[in-house]
Amino acid sequence: MQNFRHFWELTLGTVIALLPLINPLASAPTFLAITEGDTPQRRHQQLRAACLYMVAILVAFLVGGTFIMGFFGISIPGLRIAGGLLVAGIGSGLLMGPGGDLTNDARDEAKAKRDVSFSPLAMPLFAGPGSIAMTIGFTSLATAWTDYVAIILGIVIVAIISYITLRLADRVVKIVGVNGMQALSKIMGFLILCIGIQFVVNGVLGILTDKEVIGAIRAAFQGR
């Protein structure tokens, strides 16, 4: 029973952490802009492919997170601090600025492409630096194969929510309006900022409670 509860807590935590970063509601105007001129069928086809690409990218970084950390000698607290700073920076940009979005040049380039499902939709609009850093950070929470399944399920749920939201993007933009989208971006930015800061706090606490670090500090003071 406890394992079952932990499974769904990890799944829900993944959804709560990733959804504000991917932020499909705030991405709705950009999605409509870069798929302008496409038929509804073509637009939905590219959106479906982009969501599948997003799942594949994030799962790849989740599975390969341990290898990446071992190869570069990155500790879990260090990963949490670095990822937290990156995520907090993205949240701060959304909170203080007009909203995180593609640049005009990137949007114009996307319009000229026949297929925008992988770039820029899947990457970097969906699976950007923040969501990738967050996904690699999930590696520190996974201790069994069921934990990986729970995190992957959370990623899939986020992809489904993103697909449904952006499939109704034209209606969402009309209902919410420009001011509503900006307000939503700032709310999401605040949530992302809080998540990033919490990642940094967890990383610092991980360093301060590490036995090797405590032993080194103790030895330094004793040497004096």
Results as ranks from 00 to 15, higher is better:
91 G>M: 03
133 A>Y: 05
169 A>F: 07
176 V>S: 08
145 W>A: 12
13 G>H: 09
193 L>D: 02
148 Y>W: 11
4 F>D: 04
41 Q>G: 09
173 V>M: 06
40 P>T: 10
67 F>D: 07
22 I>G: 00
149 V>H: 01
9 E>P: 00
208 L>M: 13
114 R>W: 01
197 I>F: 07
103 T>F: 04
18 L>F: 08
126 F>L: 14
172 V>Q: 05
44 H>V: 10
136 I>V: 15
183 A>T: 14
189 G>S: 08
124 P>E: 04
64 G>K: 05
182 Q>C: 04
15 V>Q: 03
61 F>P: 08
20 P>K: 05
103 T>C: 07
79 L>P: 03
57 I>L: 09
184 L>P: 00
31 F>G: 03
224 R>A: 13
147 D>H: 13
211 K>G: 07
85 L>V: 15
48 R>L: 14
83 G>D: 07
201 V>R: 12
116 V>H: 01
107 R>C: 04
208 L>I: 12
180 G>L: 12
192 I>W: 00
179 N>A: 12
62 L>E: 08
15 V>K: 05
171 R>S: 13
156 V>Q: 08
62 L>N: 09
146 T>G: 02
129 P>E: 06
12 L>A: 15
117 S>H: 03
82 A>C: 09
56 A>Y: 01
160 I>V: 15
217 I>D: 11
7 F>K: 08
112 A>E: 10
95 L>D: 03
124 P>F: 02
174 K>E: 11
219 A>F: 07
110 A>E: 08
150 A>L: 12
79 L>V: 09
54 M>A: 13
138 F>Y: 12
43 R>V: 09
86 L>K: 05
101 D>E: 13
162 S>E: 01
82 A>R: 08
201 V>N: 09
186 K>Y: 01
119 S>T: 15
52 L>A: 13
185 S>W: 00
130 G>D: 04
28 A>Y: 04
162 S>I: 04
36 E>F: 00
1 M>Y: 04
89 G>N: 11
84 G>W: 08
67 F>P: 02
106 A>W: 00
49 A>P: 00
56 A>I: 13
48 R>F: 12
64 G>P: 04
148 Y>H: 12
17 A>K: 07
208 L>K: 09
202 N>H: 11
41 Q>F: 09
136 I>H: 02
190 F>H: 03
106 A>K: 08
174 K>V: 15
70 G>Y: 02
190 F>N: 06
107 R>M: 14
93 G>Q: 11
68 I>H: 02
52 L>G: 10
67 F>V: 15
138 F>G: 06
81 I>H: 08
217 I>F: 13
50 A>C: 06
46 Q>I: 03
59 V>C: 11
103 T>Y: 01
28 A>H: 04
213 V>I: 14
61 F>H: 09
171 R>L: 14
51 C>K: 02
82 A>D: 06
196 G>D: 05
205 L>A: 13
113 K>M: 14
140 S>H: 03
98 P>H: 10
104 N>T: 14
223 G>M: 11
